[in-house]
Every structure is written in structure tokens, then in C-alpha cells.
Design a protein around this nucleic acid. Structure first.
Lengths: 144, 144
DNA sequence: TCCATATGGTTAGCATGGTAACCATATGGC
DNA sequence: GCCATATGGTTACCATGCTAACCATATGGA
């Protein structure tokens, strides 16, 4: 996260990067401004999801399974690849979702016994449906 | 953090928000795209700072003390207010900076004995000077 | 003066993120 | 067929973020 309320002035950036000619201070300031807006938005989204009993990663994992067009289940590595999150983090998020009864092993499991295919339970689908419109609504109204 | 590699399609967003007329799917997709770019940038910045022995918050705390125009020290609450971070988080970040010898209690302390004014040590100033140009350089080159 | 209240700072406990290391199962070259 | 290697998943451990609760010191009104 990046929560600098008072961004550095253009002068300060320029002063520090005199010897770094490829850096332009208005450009850096613009990036910092967007970075702050994105961080604030992320904080808001996390608060909203937490209010519905989900972390960001848990919610996104549900989304990845839901939106798979041809299938109704995915394995952990497949989800991790789509989310760009490390394996252990996803492992914990999925365990938490299973504890809450929102996902469960899929009916048909692959031959490779190392993998577990995971599907949403009816409760999982309901929760996802409840949360998604508000999620998009927050994004829509974001200052970004 | 927000690390969704495959963003939802406009059609999916539109389908889910049929009953939420104030949400436009191109708008949501644009926000998601920027959110992802910002998250990736934050991850890169954190990796860069970690390579120099600093967390994001530690680095920003140094910046806040350094750029104070009239003074060379700040108290913890003053820093927390400028960073928009909770008190305990800053408390730990400052303790870590002190452990590393990068900050120290300022020479002149206020009458109010609850506060501690904090200044950068010469090592702290050196570290900050070493890190700052590269920091701005990463921001300059960001895809945001 | 004295006590209720506010403020600066830390500690405790929890959730989430990461890397490294570890099992269990597959797979491919010999 | 068998062992080295790769892959799916989990566990262990650490850093960082949060809230709630806790000290210590200030402050203001009865």
C-alpha cells in the first residue's frame, strides 16, 4: 500500500534528481497521484469485501472459478496463475473459503491425484452474486 | 494488493450489473486496468526498497522527516498523519528504523514528555539519498 | 486541587502477503 | 523397471497492515 497524504513537491523531485536526467518531475508527481488514488480505492474495496466476510484474494478466487466459460471448477495452480498470487497465499485463501462452505471439491476429479478441482457451492454462488454488483459499483465511482 | 491477471470481460461486467444501471462496464474495466498497473508498480517499488533494507512505510517516514522545510524532526503522530497510516504501524516502522540506526531522538525535545521528536542520523540521510533517485526513476518509468 | 477526559505512544492479537522447504504424485531417460 | 526431476499443494516462518486495549502524561472544569 501507498498512503502518502502529502505528495512531494515538483521542486523536491527535481532537486533530488538533478543527476538523473531521464526523470521528469511532473511525470513522477502524476504517477504518485495515481498511486495514491489506487491505494485508497484498494483500501475501500477491502473494507467493503470484509464487510461481506471475504478478503480481496478470496473474492477474486471465487470470480476466477465463476467466470470460467467451459468449466465449473479450477485447480489451485490454475487460480494462482490467473490471480498472479503466490501458491501458499492462495492455498490459505482457498482453505478459508472451504471453511466458510463457499467452495468444495468438484464432483469430477482429474486422474492426476496431486490436483484438487474446486467448485463453488450454492452458498458460494449466492455470496458471490450478493457481493459483485456492489464491488463493481465502488470501482465505477472510483477517483481513478 | 490487486493482482488479477485476467481482467473480467466487458460482457461479464455488463451481465452482472444489468440491475445496477449506474455502472458502465467500460468505465469499470478502465478502473480495473489502472488498479492492476498500480498494484504491479507497488510490488516493484517494494522489491526495490527491500533491496535497500527498507519497507515502503519506513522509506516514506524518512521522506516525511527529510522534507519538512522548517524543522529537522517530527513526532510519530505528525508522521502518521502525513502518511495516513495507523499509529501502531508507524510505531513499529520507526522502531525498526531506530534499530537500524537511521533515525534517533532529536537533540531538542518538546516540553510535552509524551512526544518524542525524531531526526535522521547521518546514516539515515545517506541511506535516503542513496535510495531516492532510483525510487523516482522506477516511478518515472511506470506504466501508469 | 482533583478527577474526568484527551492525547502520544506501545503492546497484544489477528489477517494477509511473501519465500523456503517439505510431502506426494507424475513423468521421462536410462 | 527405476531413479532423477518436475509439479501440485501444504507447512513453517517472517514482515506488514489493522483494531482494541493499555500505559503515561496533559489539560480543563468542578
Amino acid at each position: 500500500m501507498f498512503f502518502l497524504k502529502d505528495l512531494p513537491s515538483e521542486d523536491m523531485i527535481a532537486g533530488v534528481t538533478v543527476n538523473v536526467p531521464e526523470v521528469s518531475s511532473p511525470r513522477v508527481l502524476s504517477v504518485l497521484t495515481k498511486l495514491r488514488a489506487a491505494s485508497v480505492l484498494l483500501r475501500d474495496v477491502e473494507a467493503y469485501l470484509r464487510g461481506h466476510g471475504l478478503s480481496q484474494t478470496q473474492f477474486l478466487a471465487l470470480m476466477m472459478i465463476m467466470r470460467e466459460p467451459e468449466r465449473s471448477s479450477l485447480s489451485a495452480v490454475e487460480i494462482a496463475a490467473r490471480l498472479d498470487v503466490s501458491k501458499p497465499v492462495l492455498s490459505k485463501a482457498l482453505a478459508s473459503l472451504a471453511d466458510k462452505g463457499l467452495i468444495a471439491p468438484a464432483a469430477s476429479q482429474p486422474a492426476d491425484r496431486r490436483q484438487k478441482q474446486l467448485s463453488l457451492t450454492p452458498e458460494g454462488e449466492q455470496r458471490f452474486a450478493d457481493v459483485l454488483p456492489g464491488y463493481f459499483s465502488i470501482l465505477h465511482d472510483a477517483d481513478l
